[in-house]
Computed example of a mutant assay.
Amino acid sequence: MTPPARPKLASAHAIITGGSSGIGLATAHLLVSRGAAVSLVARGRERLEAAAAELRSSGGTVAFRTADVCDKAAVETAFTDLERELGKPCDVLVTSAGVARPGNFLDLPDEVFHEMMTVDYFGTLHCMRAVLPGMTQRRRGSVVAVSSAAGLMGIFGYGAYGPAKFAVRGLMESLRAEMAPYGVHVGVVFPPDVNTPQLVEENRWKPEETRAIAGTIRPLSPEQVAAAIVAGMERRRFVICPDIGTRVLARWGGVLAPVLNAEFDRRVRKVRRHRSRTCTD
């Protein structure tokens, strides 16, 4: 059997959710440089207009629509409009829209758990449901979802966010198996902390213990993650890891989990001992 052809990005129409900033915008820049036409989807019109102007200034063919990925009907309408505007169906989908809200499990309100699942999981699901029927009919395409390193291993402080990203991982594992007979590439990305506006917001809520677990690891740039995403598409990879840490975790996490958990627990105890001494001084 002839293996499926690699995506021809130079003639592709790529739809990117969360495309007005961060990983989404960096991926759009890279795809435009490969000759793809790019459609951006996000909630904020001003940032979308600015992102589109930025991409067009580098010679890109760009369209955009405002839509909330939590709204299935809005996603379907936006995608249909974008396909009509650019005159071609979606060949590539990257779902980078998402939110992260860390916090202690016992302190987080129920609404946060619902929001993480609604935005991160269902926001990914709605987009996949919108494009995969057409891709299977055409027997080509590439869909890539952004999960997280927190979708590879449970981490202190991510009791709401982590399960949603695990759900994205599970969805994409199922889709990989179902889409393979149609020649559609399925990938999932596991970035660690990335230097984006989302990380700035996330850092407002991180417990000290979560910060201690992260240690002194520097966040990746959005461009590093975008490069991994595009390379993953071109090489038809399922697991896409933009750094050595997540590559090791994705490959050997099951074996390393006891060692990593012991080290993370040690860091948590250290933070709590320091807090206890500070409170008694």
Rank of each mutant, 00 (worst) to 15 (best):
L249N: 01
R266D: 02
V62W: 14
G19P: 00
P109G: 11
R269S: 12
T17P: 00
I155V: 10
R204V: 05
A167S: 05
M233T: 08
P7F: 13
F238A: 00
M135G: 11
V112T: 08
L152K: 14
G87A: 14
V186L: 11
L260R: 07
M172I: 11
E201T: 15
D110A: 14
V239Q: 06
R218L: 15
V62E: 08
G98K: 03
N203M: 15
K270M: 13
E49L: 11
L108R: 08
R235T: 15
G170R: 10
L108W: 06
A250N: 14
N104R: 06
T118L: 02
P242C: 03
F166Q: 02
S96P: 02
T124G: 05
I15T: 13
V188D: 09
S20I: 12
C279H: 10
D110M: 12
L220G: 01
L260S: 00
E201D: 05
M172Q: 04
P242K: 07
T66M: 12
P102A: 14
L9E: 06
R140Q: 15
T118Y: 00
F105E: 00
P4H: 11
V259C: 08
E201Q: 11
R211I: 08
P89H: 08
R237M: 13
H114G: 00
V69D: 00
A149Y: 00
G24E: 04
M172T: 06
M116K: 02
L31T: 07
M135A: 07
S148Y: 06
F122H: 13
G60T: 10
P163R: 10
W252T: 07
G24N: 02
G154D: 04
A37D: 14
F64I: 12
R6H: 11
